[in-house]
Structure formats: structure tokens, C-alpha cells
């Protein structure tokens, strides 16, 4: 099958996640062609055909215009699949392209299965196989689900002119907040999730972090609820960490959180639900009420 891969480029750089698209194409035994809005100075290591629009002229974020460029390439190449990374760029653009082509879209694919694509659902607790019934399919792949592959070589570049237009004006980037806590350097991180129940209970998790000589981390819901400051957040939109010991307290394990901590050397999870997705990455899953287990562990450590 012929596959059009949509590369990603941000703040002047080709993103590494672009190579995961080649990982997908390799597993699917597809013939890849790539499109990206990027730069001549940041070409992917790939010997095939690359349709390149200049980010300086098209903007790094201009979905109407990027969609139009993709549709032009689709018309020329007639690919069976158009594949994006399931990222803030991919999940924004893919549905627009799918509607314009009236093609089925399958989101956040984790594996290629006979007759369809496997995707997660129900907060990562379950899986679905989705089978498209249109001749062309738009796909987004889950970040990290397909191993990145650098095919090697220099692309044969077809330059695309900026068609102009677009109804949206990109104002600019806002950098990530200054980090008060550098979790990346911590050897031990003890993180609080929604399972701790309320803001007052965060102190109990922090006490375990202190007893283990580590830092306090947090999952997104806890940060959104303002129980813990944002600079403690672990996950896709927070910090990516790999401590010697990661303790997940009352964290169910949304994919965005797992992406930020699954490379830790040893993961201890405490959750009352033994089917929670955190169990997928944990070395040890303690099935217990976090508010009973954590103080008991802290007390024993103090002895």
C-alpha cells in the first residue's frame, strides 16, 4: 500500500516523532512518501520522495493551509493511507483532512491487526479493533507505540509553493513555565494522583517522598485541580522522568502520564483497582487504598 506520512516540525526543528511514522510504515510493509511543512536545512534521513513546503512561508501552525497542501499531495500521489503522529499537530489536522477526503479516520493506533487497527479506549483500560470501510484511510499513531526508524539516505525533494490564505493567525509560542523542581535529576519520585482524594492528602504523599529522599511528583488531574503546582507534573505536558524509583500513588495511568515515567528503573504503584492501566508498566502493583498504605509505609521507613 502507498502511505503518505505527515512529518512534524516545530520551533525550527524536525521532530524525532517523525521517525515513528517510518516505524509504522515498516510494520505495515507500506511504500512511504512523506509530506512536511519544514525546512531544507532539516531534512529527514529518508531516501524516498519528500514533498516539502517551507515553514517560513506557510507557518508552523496554519491548519487550513497545511490541509490544502496535504490535499494537493494526496491528489498527486493517491495514497491508500495518510498517517500522522497523534500529537497536538496530528490530532488537529487529521480530522480536517479526513472530512475533506470523506475518508475514515482511526485515532491513536497502537498496533496493526489483521483487518484493522488496534486503538485504546476507556482511559487505556480496553482496546478496540477499528476497521475502515473507505478506500483511503487517515490514521494517527500513538506516540511511542511504533519504534522510530531512520530509513537513511537523502530525500528527493519536491518543493511546494505556499498557497496563501488560511483563516487563522498564529501569534506565537509561549515557552514552558520555569521549573522550580527539576524532577529529571531526582533519583526517587513519589507522585500523587487523583486517587489521593483531596488536596489535604497530598502532604501524606509528600511525607513518603521525604522519607525516601525523593521529590514529589503529580499527575495531570491533581495539577489541574491545583492540589500540586504545575512544575511537579509528570507526563507529556509536564516533565519526562526516569528515576531509580518511581512511586505512583493513586494514579490510574493515562497514556500521557505513562509516556512521562515508564522509563523509570523501578515502578511501584499503589492503586485500589488492580486493572488500572498503571499495572501495565509497574514492577509492583500494591492493591490497596493509597491513604492507608502510604502512611503505613512511611511509618515503617522511619523506624
Amino acid at each position: 500500500m502507498k502511505t503518505l506520512l505527515i512529518g512534524e516540525f516545530r520551533e525550527g526543528k524536525l521532530l524525532d516523532s517523525t521517525y515513528e511514522l517510518f516505524g509504522f510504515a515498516g510494520q505495515a510493509a507500506d511504500e512511504p512518501v512523506m509530506f512536511m511543512v519544514g525546512s531544507e536545512t532539516q531534512l529527514p534521513s529518508f531516501g524516498g520522495r519528500l514533498y516539502l513546503a517551507d515553514a517560513a512561508a506557510c507557518g508552523e501552525y496554519n491548519p487550513d493551509l497545511h490541509k490544502q497542501l496535504i490535499l494537493n499531495v494526496v491528489q498527486k500521489e493517491n495514497p491508500d493511507r495518510i498517517v500522522f503522529v497523534h500529537s497536538s499537530y496530528g490530532w488537529d489536522l487529521a480530522p480536517r483532512v479526513a472530512v475533506a477526503l470523506k475518508a475514515a479516520q482511526v485515532s491513536e493506533v497502537v498496533a496493526i491487526q489483521e483487518g484493522g487497527f488496534e486503538v485504546g479506549c476507556c482511559n487505556g483500560k480496553m482496546r478496540r479493533i477499528v476497521k475502515p470501510s473507505t478506500p483511503q484511510t487517515v490514521i494517527t499513531i500513538q506516540a511511542g507505540a511504533f519504534q522510530g526508524v531512520q530509513p537513511g539516505g537523502t530525500p528527493q525533494v519536491t518543493r511546494l509553493a505556499a498557497p496563501g490564505g488560511g483563516t487563522m493567525e498564529f501569534v506565537g509560542y509561549e515557552p514552558a513555565e520555569e521549573k522550580g523542581v527539576d524532577l529529571a535529576k531526582a533519583e526517587v519520585i513519589v507522585s500523587a494522583g487523583r486517587g489521593v482524594g483531596k488536596k489535604d492528602n497530598v502532604a501524606i504523599i509528600a511525607a513518603l517522598a521525604k522519607a525516601l529522599g525523593g521529590e514529589l511528583g503529580a499527575s495531570r488531574p491533581v495539577v489541574d485541580a491545583e492540589w500540586v503546582a504545575h512544575d511537579h507534573q509528570v507526563g507529556t505536558t509536564g516533565q519526562t522522568v526516569s528515576p531509580k524509583l518511581y512511586v505512583a500513588c493513586g494514579i490510574s495511568g493515562a497514556i500521557q502520564h505513562l509516556a512521562g515515567m515508564k522509563k523509570s528503573d523501578f515502578i511501584l504503584a499503589i492503586n485500589k483497582d488492580k486493572d488500572a492501566p498503571i499495572g501495565e508498566v509497574a514492577d509492583v502493583l500494591v492493591v490497596a487504598d493509597v491513604m492507608q498504605f502510604v502512611p503505613a509505609l512511611t511509618a515503617k521507613l522511619a523506624k
Binding site: A104, G124, M126, I129, K131, P132, V281, D283, L285, A288
Partner: peptide, 24 residues
């Protein structure tokens, strides 16, 4: 519809993780 769900199932357990149950 343009796509259909053909299966709904729990993820394959990767194993490795040790379950610790019982009293606190």
C-alpha cells in the same frame, strides 16, 4: 459510518508486574 469497531477487549497483559494483595 466510514469505520466499524470489530472487537472490544482488554489489552494483552504484558506480565512482569507483581501484584501485592492482602492486609496493609
Amino acid at each position: 459510518s466510514l469505520a466499524k469497531t470489530t472487537s472490544f477487549h482488554p489489552p494483552a497483559k504484558k506480565g512482569g508486574g507483581l501484584l501485592v494483595e492482602g492486609d496493609i
